[in-house]
Computed example of a mutant assay.
Amino acid sequence: MDYLTQGIQYMQEQQYEEAAQAFTQAIEENPNEPLGYVNFGNLLLHMNDRERAERFFKKAIELNEDVATAHYGLGNVYYEQEKYEEAVEPFQKAIQKGLEESDAYYMLGLSLLYQEQFKFALAYLQRATELSPDDAEVHFQYGLCLAQVGMIDEAIQTFTKVLTLNAEHSDAHYNLGVSYLYKEDPEQALKHFGLAIDIQPDHMLAANAKAKVEELLEQNQGE
């Protein structure tokens, strides 16, 4: 077994010190092979050593800028520091270099979403849902983005899809409630706010929204 494979196995077994030693040996054996630096970068990122992780990913890119996982790793370094604007370019490059995986599109979409660039985020999050059709969280973030651009019917369909994947997703119920308020359907909104609270009793947003809708319905009945 080569040092890289050994290091990855150690990482999976959460033996991080042994993984670091294996990746160090892999780099010493092949100093011009970028994958050693990428894997060491992933280990450092996992251990929240972002400054050193950034250096390792950049070294990998310096050796071979076509290694998609090095760009993806660098994007994650910036994303975890909430440097969303800086994260966009490496995530884009990871995709351009052939990383056709849901995570790459998802992280790029989120980086744009958190900058409130909703229209740009939408296409990437949609692609992430196509590549991960059973991932509730990917669909949920896509639903939030649809709602932000005013595609309320599509958002409702997407949040409903989230609940078929994870029936206990309280935030999906809450956002369905908000979506139904936009559709001027307070009864449906009330139902979903109630379900959000049933799942998560301390869901303050759902509790406040439910109270306001109930108050509004009472006022309307009194008129």
Score class of each variant (00 low, 15 high):
residue 5 T to F: 01
residue 6 Q to G: 03
residue 6 Q to E: 12
residue 7 G to D: 03
residue 7 G to T: 06
residue 8 I to Y: 01
residue 8 I to D: 04
residue 9 Q to T: 12
residue 10 Y to L: 02
residue 11 M to H: 01
residue 12 Q to I: 10
residue 13 E to Q: 15
residue 14 Q to I: 03
residue 14 Q to N: 14
residue 15 Q to W: 01
residue 17 E to P: 04
residue 18 E to F: 02
residue 18 E to I: 02
residue 20 A to I: 07
residue 21 Q to V: 08
residue 21 Q to I: 12
residue 21 Q to H: 11
residue 23 F to L: 07
residue 23 F to Q: 06
residue 25 Q to N: 11
residue 26 A to F: 02
residue 27 I to P: 09
residue 27 I to G: 01
residue 28 E to S: 07
residue 28 E to R: 12
residue 31 P to R: 06
residue 32 N to E: 11
residue 32 N to R: 13
residue 32 N to F: 08
residue 32 N to H: 11
residue 33 E to D: 15
residue 33 E to N: 13
residue 37 Y to H: 14
residue 37 Y to N: 08
residue 39 N to L: 04
residue 40 F to G: 05
residue 40 F to H: 10
residue 40 F to Q: 13
residue 42 N to C: 13
residue 45 L to R: 13
residue 46 H to C: 11
residue 46 H to P: 04
residue 46 H to Y: 14
residue 47 M to E: 15
residue 48 N to C: 09
residue 49 D to P: 09
residue 51 E to H: 08
residue 53 A to L: 10
residue 55 R to H: 14
residue 56 F to T: 11
residue 58 K to D: 03
residue 58 K to R: 14
residue 60 A to S: 10
residue 60 A to N: 06
residue 60 A to C: 13
residue 60 A to E: 01
residue 61 I to R: 00
residue 62 E to A: 05
residue 62 E to I: 07
residue 63 L to M: 05
residue 63 L to C: 05
residue 65 E to W: 06
residue 66 D to G: 06
residue 66 D to A: 12
residue 66 D to M: 09
residue 67 V to I: 09
residue 69 T to S: 10
residue 69 T to Q: 09
residue 71 H to R: 08
residue 72 Y to V: 03
residue 72 Y to I: 05
residue 72 Y to W: 05
residue 73 G to F: 07
residue 73 G to I: 04
residue 75 G to R: 01
residue 75 G to N: 03
residue 76 N to T: 08
residue 78 Y to A: 10
residue 80 E to K: 14
residue 80 E to L: 15
residue 81 Q to F: 11
residue 81 Q to D: 13
residue 81 Q to S: 14
residue 81 Q to Y: 12
residue 82 E to V: 15
residue 82 E to N: 15
residue 83 K to P: 10
residue 85 E to I: 14
residue 85 E to R: 15
residue 85 E to W: 11
residue 86 E to I: 13
residue 86 E to G: 10
residue 86 E to F: 08
residue 87 A to D: 08
residue 87 A to S: 10
residue 88 V to A: 03
residue 88 V to G: 00
residue 88 V to K: 02
residue 90 P to C: 01
residue 91 F to I: 05
residue 91 F to C: 06
residue 92 Q to E: 12
residue 93 K to A: 04
residue 94 A to L: 02
residue 98 G to K: 00
residue 98 G to L: 00
residue 99 L to H: 02
residue 99 L to M: 08
residue 100 E to V: 06
residue 100 E to M: 02
residue 102 S to N: 13
residue 102 S to H: 08
residue 103 D to G: 09
residue 103 D to E: 14
residue 103 D to V: 09
residue 105 Y to T: 03
residue 107 M to C: 07
residue 109 G to L: 01
residue 110 L to F: 05
residue 110 L to W: 08
residue 111 S to F: 07
residue 111 S to K: 04
residue 112 L to H: 02
residue 112 L to W: 02
residue 112 L to N: 00
residue 113 L to E: 06
residue 113 L to V: 01
residue 114 Y to Q: 11
residue 114 Y to S: 06
residue 115 Q to F: 09
residue 115 Q to V: 11
residue 116 E to D: 12
residue 116 E to R: 10
residue 117 Q to H: 14
residue 117 Q to W: 06
residue 117 Q to A: 10
residue 118 F to K: 04
residue 119 K to W: 07
residue 122 L to N: 04
residue 127 R to L: 03
residue 127 R to A: 07
